[in-house]
Amino acid sequence: MGETLTIRLTVNGKAYDRPVEPRLLLSDFLRHDLHLTGTHVGCEHGVCGACTVLLDGEAVRSCLVFAVQADGAEISTVEGLATPSDGSGIPHPEDADLHPIQAAFRESHGLQCGFCTPGILMTLVPFLEENPDPDEEQIREALSGHLCRCTGYQNIVTAVRLAADRMAT
């Protein structure tokens, strides 16, 4: 390893203090230094969206961010989405700990191979906060920064609408 800088940040509420090379990408830092491998890397040039995480609440492509740029930031990844809840509104008790968006994806068959899914989920979290009642066009627009080769997007759109309904109640 070449010259390193030490960064401090929190990921899913947990504080980390790590030396990193300046050229280390945030995606690689999360996946390979912190072993949070739920964030996936699909293109490494910011097009596919699979590596999307929340940086201080905003959805960013972690393959386009250097780890050093996340110094002092709060990061959220897919691993932090599910939290034990009362499961209200989720008809499948075994999914009660899932975030409503996660549960809706399962219920609507919004994923197949699941590789692109974590990034899509992380985009949808702030999207649904800002757009609690989106129409299909808004949903498709929000998804258009993500590539999915398996689903044809249709069931993802359904899942987002279902999640919005659940989260509204």
């Binding site: 070449g2 050229r23 990408l25 690689d28 490494e44 040039h45 910011g46 393959c63």
Partner: peptide, 10 residues
Amino acid sequence: WPPATRKERL
């Protein structure tokens, strides 16, 4: 800056 980083290909 250090030489082009691995994934900074763009």
